[in-house]
Design a protein around this nucleic acid. Structure first.
Length: 418
RNA sequence: GGAGGGAUCGCAUAGUGGUCUAGUGCGGCCGCCUGCUAAGCGGUUACCCCGAGAAAUUGGGGUCGAGGGUUCGAAUCCCUCUCCCUCCGCCA
C-alpha cells in the first residue's frame, strides 16, 4: 500500500510513477475521498471533545439535569452519524488504496511489457549436445520418474506425480537448497502454515486484486498459499521489531498452490506450470537504508544455487511495465532448458520497499526513543522446484537417455540405487 | 464436537457504571549518589489518526482481544466472534 500522505503531498509524483507501469489509476478520486474523510473525522472529533467535557461535568451529581441529559443524547446521535460517515469514507479510501501497485524504484528501466526487460548478466555457457536433446516430459516418461497420466487421473489437468528417483531428486533438491541457504548464506529456516487467513493475503498484496489465482476454502475461509512469501510477509504482522534484529533473513520450503486462471492454455505440456508446486523461498526484512543492498545479496544467494548445480542461467531485470504488483524492483533468474528450448524463470527476486510492510503493519524502531518506521521487505525464490528439475533433466541428459546428476546433489541422493 | 475458565500499557497484577487523565510491582531507559557489574534516590517508559509548526514540540480524538449493543457516561453490564487454558469425546 502506498502512503496516503505521499499521495496527498506529491500527487504528481505518484501519478507519474504509476504511469510507468503502463496502467492508469484514479489518483484524483483518492484525493477527494481523503479530503472528505478528514473533514468528517475532524467534525466528529470536535463534537466528541465537547461531549466528553460535558460528560465529565455530569459525573458530579449536582450538575445533572434532564435538560442536559437530553442535549447530550442528541449530541450522541450526531456523533454516531458522523462516525458512520467517517468510517465509510475511511474504508472506501482504504479499498482504493489497496488496489494501487507499488511505485517503481528509480533504477528500474522504463518499458511497457516483458519486451522491455534487460539481461543484466549471464553465467555459464548453454551446453551443446552431439544428439538432439529431449524435452523433460519425454525424459521423465522414459525414465519413469514423472507420471503425467496418473496425476491427471487423481486431480485433473496441470497435475502430475513424481515417482522413484524423480520424487527422490525433488526431495534432495529441497534439502540441498535449504542447507545451502541456512548453513552458507545465513538464513533462518521456517516451516509456515500452507493455509492462511484472508488478512495475510491482503498483507502480501495477493488480495483484494488477485483472488482469481488463489485456492480458497470458503467453509473455513482458509486461503492456500501461492508462495511462502505470503506467510513470511505476515510472520511479523502487527509487530514492532528492534533495529538490532534487522536484517532478518528467512528461508522457507512450502508447496505452492495456484489456480493459473490467468495463464489458461499456456505451458500445458510438462511440469513447468502446475496448480501445485514446491518452492524454497528466501525472505528478508530490512531497514529502508539497506534494502537496495540486500536485494543484490538476495539475488546472489539464489544464483549460488544455480551455480552449485552448474546450470547456465541469465539474470534479467524487469522493466516498469513488467513489475509485479507489490515490487518496486525485480530481478529474475532464468535457466536454459535445451530440451524445450527456452529460458525458464526459476527465481524472481524483488524489493517491495515498505509496500507490504505497510499492509501487514510490520514496523521497527531505529533507536530507543525514535518513532516507529515500516521495514522494507524482499522476497525471492531460492529456487522453484519443477523448473530446476526440468533444467537438471534437460541439461544433464546423456545420449542413452539417462541423466547424470550434478555433483552438488551427490550427498543428498543416498537412496540412489533404489 | 461438549462443559467450564480466561484475555488490562514489555512482563506480572489492581480495577464490577462517573474521582480511570487506567493504579502498583518488575523489567527497560535517562540522571544523581556511591572507592568495585550491588544497594539507594529522582524522573521516564504503548500505539494509531487528525490539526498547528521548518523543527524540537504542541492541541484534539481513538485504542483495556475484535466487533456490535445498553447508557448522558462502559475496562466494568449485555450479545456475537477470535484466541488461550482445563476437563470430556474423537483422531493422524
Amino acid at each position: 500500500m502506498l502512503d496516503i500522505k505521499l499521495i496527498r503531498e506529491n500527487p504528481d509524483f505518484v501519478k507519474r510513477s504509476l504511469e510507468k507501469r503502463n496502467e492508469n489509476f484514479d489518483i484524483d478520486g483518492i484525493l477527494q475521498l481523503d479530503a472528505s474523510y478528514r473533514r468528517s473525522l475532524q467534525q466528529q472529533e470536535q463534537l466528541r471533545a465537547q461531549h466528553k467535557k460535558m460528560s465529565k461535568q455530569m459525573s458530579n451529581p449536582s450538575e445533572r439535569s434532564p435538560e442536559l441529559t437530553l442535549q447530550m443524547r442528541q449530541m450522541g446521535e450526531e456523533i454516531s452519524a458522523l462516525q458512520e460517515e467517517t468510517s465509510k469514507n475511511k474504508s472506501d479510501l482504504e479499498n482504493l488504496l489497496l488496489l494501487l501497485p507499488n511505485i517503481p524504484h528509480e533504477s528500474v528501466p522504463l518499458g511497457n511489457d516483458a519486451s522491455g526487460n534487460i539481461v543484466v548478466r549471464t553465467w555459464g555457457e548453454p551446453k551443446t549436445f552431439a544428439f538432439k536433446p529431449l524435452p523433460h516430459w519425454e525424459l521423465g516418461e522414459k525414465l519413469d520418474i514423472i507420471d503425467f497420466q496418473r496425476g491427471v487421473k487423481l486431480s485433473g489437468s496441470r497435475f502430475y506425480a513424481l515417482k522413484g528417483w524423480g520424487a527422490h531428486l525433488q526431495r534432495a533438491l529441497i534439502s540441498f537448497m535449504l542447507d545451502t541457504h541456512v548453513i552458507d548464506h545465513g538464513y533462518q529456516e521456517i516451516y509456515p502454515p500452507f493455509m492462511v487467513k484472508k488478512e495475510c493475503m491482503v498483507g502480501s498484496g495477493n488480495l483484494p486484486k488477485f483472488g482469481d489465482n488463489l485456492y480458497h476454502d470458503k467453509e473455513e475461509d482458509y486461503w492456500f498459499v501461492p508462495t511462502a512469501e505470503v506467510p513470511l510477509t505476515n510472520f511479523h504482522r502487527d509487530e514492532i521489531l528492534d533495529a538490532e534484529c534487522l536484517p532478518i533473513n528467512y528461508v522457507a520450503y512450502t508447496t505452492c498452490f495456484r489456480r493459473e486462471k490467468m495463464a489458461a492454455g499456456k505451458d500445458t505440456r510438462g511440469i513447468k506450470r502446475g496448480h501445485q508446486f514446491d518452492k524454497v523461498e528466501l525472505y528478508k526484512l530490512t531497514n529502508p537504508e539497506n534494502s537496495d543492498k540486500e536485494l543484490e545479496k538476495l539475488i546472489a544467494d539464489a544464483e549460488d544455487i544455480c551455480q552449485r548445480l552448474e546450470l547456465p542461467y541469465r539474470v534479467v531485470q524487469l522493466c516498469t511495465g513488467d513489475l509485479g504488483f507489490a515490487a518496486c524492483k525485480t530481478y529474475d533468474i532464468e535457466l536454459w532448458a535445451p530440451g524445450c528450448n527456452e529460458w525458464l524463470e526459476v527465481s524472481s527476486c524483488s524489493n517491495c520497499g515498505d509496500f507490504q510492510a505497510r499492509r501487514a503493519n510490520v514496523r521497527y524502531r531505529s533507536a530507543a526513543n525514535a518513532r516507529t518506521q515500516f521495514v522494507h521487505t524482499l522476497n525471492g525464490s531460492g529456487v522453484a522446484l519443477p523448473r530446476v528439475f526440468i533444467a537438471i533433466l534437460e541439461n544433464y541428459q546423456q545420449a542413452d537417455g539417462t541423466v547424470v546428476l550434478p555433483e552438488a546433489l551427490t550427498p543428498y541422493m543416498k537412496a540412489r540405487q533404489s
